[in-house]
């Protein structure tokens, strides 16, 4: 399905540097934890939205969680051509924050389904680079 000869979609994507800066979040679900009020955030924040503290530390979040609600994408965007019809969901991770992610290797998606993180291809950026990131599959 994916090959270097794939057409490069004409998309207004962020620069390669922007993608590089988001890599910890995309590959390892690194968010932040507030050292004053213990709130956990994803994506990372510089200021805690709960208590306004700037005293935050990075934290690699749990790679497992459960589905809160799901929908199904029938019209993949440019850059995702050829992608099969796929469900996607809000997933609440075991240590609190929620993420929006595509689901792979699942049969039926129901709220409460246990899922685990995997790394999959996201899309080819307009600079030609492939961006990878988290997706979730049924927990094994």
């Amino acid at each position: 399905m994916w090959a270097p000869s794939d057409p490069i979609a004409r998309l207004n994507t962020a620069s390669g540097a922007r993608g590089w800066r988001s890599r910890h979040g995309r590959y390892r679900l690194v968010g932040t934890v507030c050292l004053s009020c213990d709130a956990v955030h994803f994506p990372s924040r510089r200021v805690c939205p709960s208590c306004r503290s700037r005293d935050l530390a990075e934290k690699a979040l749990s790679r497992t969680g459960k589905v809160v609600c799901a929908a199904e994408d029938r019209t993949p965007l440019a850059g995702h051509a050829g992608r099969p019809v796929s469900p996607f969901a809000i997933i609440t991770l075991d240590d609190g924050p929620s993420v929006l992610a595509e689901l792979v290797e699942v049969e039926a998606v129901t709220p409460g389904l246990r899922v685990e993180m995997v790394i999959r291809k996201w899309r080819r950026e307009s600079n030609g680079l492939y961006q990878y990131g988290y997706k979730f599959r049924e927990a094994r």
Partner: peptide, 25 residues
């Protein structure tokens, strides 16, 4: 979101589909 939603393949129809699903649920 330009870092974690758009590159993962989500447009605003997708995010609002989740709000829709959640409302029904």
């Amino acid at each position: 979101d330009a870092d974690f939603e758009a590159p993962a393949g989500f447009d605003f129809v997708d995010t609002m589909a989740l709000m829709h699903a959640r409302y029904l649920q």
